[in-house]
């Protein structure tokens, strides 16, 4: 599937992308953006589910189960707090319109 060299290319391009995407972020958004990127690595949920799906002993099921619980917490919690923070950013103009 994803070969060694191809994997390295993906890694390199993704690294540049991450750097560029947030390189011009204003300070006022640092905390929400950190929270947002925290949400994005919640994609680990997909991997944790695959690992638990393939588990065939009790030990592996216990570890896999913990992994999925933690990953779901990362994804859901990350989303909820990021959205809550970002929803509060309003301009004076939009406020008067309400």
């Amino acid at each position: 599937m994803i070969d060694g060299v191809i994997a390295l290319y993906i890694f390199m391009l993704a690294a540049f992308t991450g750097y560029e995407v947030i390189s011009r972020v204003p300070v006022i958004l640092h905390t929400p953006l950190m929270s947002g990127s925290n949400f994005v690595h919640g994609i680990v949920l997909v991997g944790a589910m695959v690992a638990l799906a393939a588990a065939d002993t009790t030990l592996l099921r216990v570890i896999g189960f913990l992994g999925v619980v933690l990953a779901a917490g990362n994804a859901v919690g990350g989303y909820v707090v990021t959205e809550r923070m970002l929803k509060m950013f309003v301009t004076a103009a939009r406020k008067k319109g309400n």
């Binding site: 690294a15 750097y19 690595h41």
Partner: peptide
């Protein structure tokens, strides 16, 4: 072999380092 994890993880890794 999960491209979504590789890409999302790396993007956060580099963006997080910059941050």
């Amino acid at each position: 072999d999960n491209a979504a994890m590789i890409i999302a993880g790396t993007v956060v890794g580099s963006a997080g380092t910059l941050l």
